[in-house]
Nucleic acid binder design. Structure first.
Length: 462
RNA sequence: CGGGGCGUAGCUCAGCCUGGUAGAGCGCCAGCUUUGGGAGCUGGAAGCCGGAGGUUCGAAUCCUCUCGCCCCGACCA
């Protein structure tokens, strides 16, 4: 039997209430795009990758390249915003450099040949050699040298948050090791080493604050400088069994208080070096044993979420980033660079926060703060109660995802646990009879029955 | 880049060894019943079996080549 396509009949369209103007930042699930997967996709081996796919956050396009769907994009933007705020607070200046760069810049620094196959090389229609940037030292140095000519304009620190491409031989673990990834990279310019090291430790402090705000316990470890070059570097790791790096550290490193670090202090480096923490490349078993009491020695795996480098004049000399000093002499500037894997952090945060049922977002990065659940979408009283709560949450500016779908209660609970919003507010017929709603904390699993007003208060509304 | 594995419906997979009209569960659509932890029944839609060659009367199945994806290792935010 032939049926006309649904769009020929207005009656066939699903009835979705139009979003109110006041609903900005809030969302009815019936109008959202949240393609949940009930089963584990076979390609995903580690938990964050599985959960991101199952929770409808990302979709793979090709190996190591992903689309970010609405829920995932919200989480990504939350992470990005925290990174931005802490960079701004440290005095760094946000810019935005292009993804596509001219090869000449990289030929100048000598890295065009060094970088190898990881760099995606492109030719434009005029046969000009271009590349999709794996990082931006050359680009920012070029900007700097065109405009900054005097030591009196220093220090400066520029950052941007931009997509990078590194043609990894073997991308894996979802967004944790993609070929295309979102990265915050900052570049500092100073007149001398002393000042450059201060810039370095300013970033050190900013990084500690950034990761802690995301509910993580960062472990800063001494690191190799690798192809970026230089002689001072730290990596910041999040502990996770699925991490790719091996760490050796003093368990007291978690006591390191970034608020008490003075980046300008002459002894800051020694202070931080006072805590033993190293990747396996830098690990010295003899030193580990003499300096750290056995009870505090830790050997664990970690996910690298950031790395900072001081590399002196490695780029400024070949590229002519030179300022005039107080005595009229030319001085190549002292540089550092500072990266945070923004898209990787989303995966790392999930690795650090989940259970068998799904993701457990820290409030600071959760894509929504609250999931409002109408357990019985066909019931007029439930609809009225849930709609009223939704309107109040909306007015209070509490980011809410409102599950108004006509699904079974079990499916709704499972979906909420999977996407892991910090709070769930459940409206059901049982509670309505008693004049209560149920507030559940995703992290602890604690639930309590409250009057709607009390629940709103608890969530900070009104 | 070395080694291994897998491509069949949106997802998870069976069928392949031993060639003979393409299957299941979940999801999706319609209807009815249900409703506090992934509901039930009935009916339905949906796949050039990754692609190209070959063998054969006949290929998801056998052979060759290719492309894609995943895993282990070496390398990297």
């Amino acid at each position: 039997m032939h049926r006309p396509p649904a769009w020929t009949s207005a009656a066939a369209l699903p009835k979705v209430p139009p979003p109110l103007a006041a609903e900005q930042g809030l969302m009815r699930l019936s109008a959202y795009f949240l393609p949940l997967l009930r089963e584990n996709p076979s390609e995903a081996q580690i938990v964050s990758h599985r959960l991101m796919l199952r929770a409808g956050m990302i979709r793979q396009s090709s190996a190591g390249i992903y689309s970010w769907l609405p829920l995932g994009l919200r989480a990504l933007k939350q992470v990005e915003q925290i990174v931005r705020e802490e960079q701004d607070a440290s005095g760094a200046l946000e810019v935005l450099m292009p993804t596509i760069q001219p090869a000449e810049l990289w030929q100048e620094s000598g890295r065009y040949d060094d970088y190898g196959k990881e760099m995606l090389r492109i030719t434009d229609r005029h046969e000009r050699a271009m590349l999709y940037g794996p990082t931006n030292e050359e680009q920012i140095t070029d900007i700097f040298r065109h405009s900054i000519k005097s030591y009196r304009d220093l220090p400066k620190n520029f950052y941007h948050i931009q997509w990078k491409f590194r043609d990894e031989v073997r991308p894996r673990f979802g967004v944790m090791r993609g070929r295309e990834f979102l990265m915050k990279d900052a570049y500092s310019f100073d007149i001398d080493k002393r000042s450059a090291v201060t810039a370095y430790f300013k970033m050190f402090v900013a990084y500690m604050k950034t990761f802690k705000r995301m509910g993580l316990k960062p472990i800063p470890v001494r690191a190799e400088t690798g192809p970026i070059g230089g002689d001072l570097s730290h990596e910041f790791h999040v502990q996770a069994d699925t991490g790719e790096s091996e760490l050796y550290f003093d368990s007291d490193v978690v006591l390191l208080d970034e608020n008490r670090i003075d980046p300008a202090s002459l002894t800051v480096q020694d202070d931080i070096a006072g805590w033993y923490a190293a990747t396996d490349e830098k690990h010295d078993p003899a030193e580990f044993e003499t300096r750290v009491p056995e009870a505090r020695r830790r050997h664990a795996r970690g996910i690298e979420v950031g790395q900072i480098f001081y590399f002196g004049t490695k780029y400024s000399k070949p590229m002519g980033a030179v300022v005039v000093g107080p005595g009229d002499e030319p001085i190549p500037v002292e540089m550092g660079s500072y990266g945070i894997g923004v898209s990787r952090l989303v995966g790392a945060i999930i690795e650090a926060g989940h259970d068998d049922a799904g993701i457990i977002w820290p409030e600071s990065v959760a894509p929504f703060r609250l999931g409002l659940v109408n357990l019985r979408a066909g019931d007029a009283r439930c609809i009225a109660a849930a709609d009223e709560l939704y309107a109040k949450l909306c007015a209070a500016g509490i980011e809410t995802l409102y599950d108004d779908r006509d699904e079974s209660p079990g499916a709704k609970f499972a979906a909420m646990d999977l996407i892991g919003l910090p709070y769930q507010l459940v409206v059901g017929p049982r509670g309505i009879d008693k004049g209560v709603v149920e507030l559940k904390e995703r992290g602890t699993g604690k639930r309590q029955e409250l009057s709607p007003e009390a629940a709103l208060n608890r969530l900070g509304a009104k």
